[in-house]
Design a protein around this nucleic acid. Structure first.
Lengths: 309, 309
DNA sequence: TCAACCATATGTCCTGGACAATGAACCGAC
DNA sequence: GTCGGTTCATTGTCCAGGACATATGGTTGA
């Protein structure tokens, strides 16, 4: 199964420019050419590109890894794994990952629902989903999980979370929060997890799903009169794009609207972004909500005092 | 707010190559250059590009429309609108579109849930969601709906459908169906709608969400031992990519697995694809499922007869 | 020890040309 | 007159190779 350069771009997320540049500079990948002189990538090249992309998404440099063999790269991924040290759920992670690998969709769904019911939504997100995500991510990094197995996991988790969120009485509450991602961001699970934490706290969440154009985020925030805009960025999202976008959005939004940026990517952010609150991990979102409430109460009191004068 | 060529590619879905080629051939868009000689697109250019993209997604040729003014393009979209002729729900479409435009998220959610309960899942999908999608799509084409309003609609509908699908007893049933889309496809609503039609018919649906690499679709089909693989393509999906992908997938899948392709795009397909069943509209999926069952029963009978010999 | 600086590594953009694939118009045969 | 095939125009994708901006990591000097 040989793919042309567009197909490889779609499959790996590496742009055509990058693929050609790597070929020019590093000599890999060096695909065969068809009768028209166009690149034809083999399945093996694509597999290695996938491995390289995975490692780059966790911060490695292409020049250091591009000449390694496929199994060396997988070993690298293994080595990089920090301390697995399963924090709370003793074997659930292992069980769930095993279920994924044996393609037991019903069992997975059942176990997730079961855990969720036992723990409650917030605890489920913080103590089960978060470490589970890490476990799945690492298994995938080591090449132990196929892409489709990870897709299944994401879907099942979304089903479980959505169902639980829906069970809460909604449609009112303070603050009103707008949830979405920038264009280019493919992952929506983070949004759902934040929503799962905020809704039980009494916030009113309005999710636009992924990939909302910047200008429309602004319009939506104004139209829905939200007090808070929360954006989610996965680990693979380019920091530069994010910081530029956040700065632009901050400029366009009235200062009364708080702006949150969360997700894996935020850990790679160096600069401080004035007027943007970074939420480095999910648990922090609850704290940030509480501190928003304090400020809001103070501001209300101040306004009331002004009114009394 | 001036954007560079990458940002425009992300926002409009038009590739850098296409943007440069249009500039070269048609003289539009002709963005200013910054100090480095790099293109800087204005908001007005981007708005017009959005309008052009929308029209192209319904079959127009760029050369015919690229020189029209923005309002001429919106008028074109209006003119193209076929027969609105609301089939059944008398004013619901109008009401719901009005709710979208007034940003009444709770009302929208409530109305959708209400309709769903009254009509039942299948009828809701066929008689409410389908015309509603068309109404929303057309309103959007005419520039009456903002992107974020359409995002909100999609999200709310997904919530409603997922909740309803979840209420069905699951995890067993024949056939087992794998649902997903090709890489590059951004829209997952179609998958959810098919699932909403098939689950009540007693099929067991396994959804992988959007953008599963070809090779992983094959692996997933084998791993989950499905009898049917159903793929969804939105109107904007390039026919060529779809037909090539379908042919490749058909080649790689055992012939015992049926392959369905559905969604707006399928109406633009001319060639016949051997071994691929086109599902031109949602209602057809139920018929196709029934006819699959007949064939399956016959094949089972035949196998049994063979066994008795 | 820390900050400023510099070399290197890396990604993005550019131009302009070649060519493939798609759609539309035309033409001949039934 | 209509159907099917052929030709022509339109449109998108790919290629090469260069320029340059930015990020990274190490080094030097205070």
């Amino acid at each position: 199964m040989a793919l042309n350069i567009s197909a490889v771009e779609r499959e790996t997320g590496l742009s055509k420019d990058v693929l050609r540049m790597w070929e020019r500079r590093y000599g890999f990948p060096k695909p065969q050419r068809d009768d028209n002189g166009e690149r034809q990538y083999t399945a093996a090249e694509i597999a290695k590109l996938h491995a390289i992309k995975r490692l780059m998404d966790v911060g490695m440099r292409p020049g250091k890894i591009i000449h390694g063999a496929l199994d060396e790269l997988n070993a690298l991924a293994e080595a990089r794994t920090p301390a697995p040290a399963a924090p709370l759920p003793p074997d659930f992670e292992h069980d769930l990952v095993a279920m994924l690998r044996s393609h037991d969709a019903p069992g997975l769904q059942h176990t997730l629902a079961n855990l969720l019911m036992r723990q409650g939504l917030q605890k489920f997100v913080l103590e089960t989903v978060t470490p589970l995500n890490r476990a799945v991510g690492e298994a995938w990094m080591r090449g132990e999980l196929q892409v489709f197995e990870e897709h299944l996991y994401t879907e099942q988790l979304q089903v479980a979370l959505r169902t639980a969120i829906n069970a809460f009485p909604r449609q009112t509450g303070t603050p009103k929060v707008l949830l979405t991602t920038f264009p280019g961001e493919q992952h929506g699970l983070g949004l759902l997890m934040v929503e799962a934490l905020l809704v039980p706290e009494g916030a009113q969440c309005i999710s636009l799903g992924i990939q909302t154009p910047l200008e429309d985020i602004r319009r939506a925030a104004l139209a829905h009169k939200v007090q808070l805009v929360a954006l989610s960025f996965s680990g693979a999202f380019p920091v530069r794009q994010a910081t530029e976008g956040l700065a632009a959005l901050r400029r366009e939004l009235p200062s009364s609207i708080t702006l949150w940026a969360g997700g894996e990517m935020t850990r790679r952010v160096r600069k401080t972004l004035p007027g943007v609150i970074l939420i480095p991990d999910l648990a922090a979102s609850i704290g940030a909500l509480k501190s928003w409430r304090v400020h809001w109460a103070q501001a209300s009191a101040w306004l009331a005092a002004q009114g009394e004068r």
